[in-house]
Simulated assay, not measured.
Amino acid sequence: MTLTDTVPPHAHTAHIDPLVFREGMSRLPSGITLITTGGPAGQHGFTATAVCSVSDTPPTLLVCVNRNTSAHDHILAHQCLAVNVLAQGQEHLCSAFSSRKYTMAERFALAHWQTGTTGAPLLEHALVSFECRISRVIDTPTHSLILATVEHVQWCTTAEKGLVWFQKNFALTQKINT
């Protein structure tokens, strides 16, 4: 059972121009993920950078899902999701999963997928994939904040660089020897 909380629409009023906020946030590098789900209504997914670790006991991720995203209601209905972290060379998937000009079938046809134990599609050759069940949803006026308990983790042993979004463009991670 998912617990749902609601944040009042005007709990805190910010006085920062949204464009200024977006420009500032563009300087915070973010991993690029494909959030996917599967179930009776089929496969659905979208590109997200608003994902972070909450805890390792139990392993939990926070996934922020825009309520206008076509996959939003399917994720909540299926009660499961996968967080597929993109690697170098998967930029085309980021673009396709963030564009409304592609149908879900067309998006998923661009890569090879495995079906996880929850039914969520797992991207082959992703840097890492986290298969999760939804444990709690916090509703805000624009997004659902999903706390997802991780049930399975798999990673690609050949992918060397992660794909990130930085200053409104793709960038790659690089290890620094210290």
Rank of each mutant, 00 (worst) to 15 (best):
M1H: 12
M1K: 14
T6I: 13
H10K: 02
A11N: 01
H12I: 15
A14R: 00
I16F: 04
D17I: 01
G24S: 06
S26K: 06
S26F: 01
L28A: 00
P29K: 00
S30R: 14
G31L: 08
I32Q: 04
L34Y: 07
I35V: 14
G42R: 10
Q43G: 02
Q43C: 07
T47R: 08
T49C: 06
V51Q: 05
V51F: 09
V51I: 14
C52R: 03
S53Q: 08
V54S: 11
S55G: 12
S55Q: 07
D56A: 12
D56L: 13
T57A: 12
T57N: 14
P59K: 15
L61C: 08
L62V: 04
V63R: 02
C64I: 15
N68W: 00
A71N: 06
D73K: 15
H74A: 12
L76P: 01
A77T: 07
Q79S: 14
C80P: 02
C80I: 01
L81K: 02
A82K: 02
V83L: 04
V85Y: 10
L86Q: 06
A87N: 05
Q88G: 05
Q90T: 05
E91D: 13
L93K: 15
S95K: 15
A96S: 14
S98M: 11
Y102M: 06
A105Q: 14
E106K: 08
E106C: 10
R107P: 02
R107L: 03
A109R: 08
L110F: 05
H112A: 09
W113N: 01
W113I: 01
Q114T: 13
A120I: 06
E124S: 10
E124I: 12
L127Q: 07
L127K: 03
V128F: 06
E131H: 10
R133E: 11
I134H: 00
I138K: 02
D139R: 12
D139P: 00
T140E: 03
T140M: 04
T142C: 12
H143V: 03
S144I: 04
L147W: 01
V150N: 07
V150C: 09
E151Y: 05
V153I: 15
W155F: 12
W155C: 11
T157K: 11
T158I: 05
T158S: 15
A159R: 07
K161G: 00
G162M: 04
L163K: 08
L163R: 12
L163Y: 07
F170K: 01
F170C: 02
T173M: 04
T173E: 11
K175V: 10
K175W: 10
I176K: 11
T178C: 06
T178N: 08
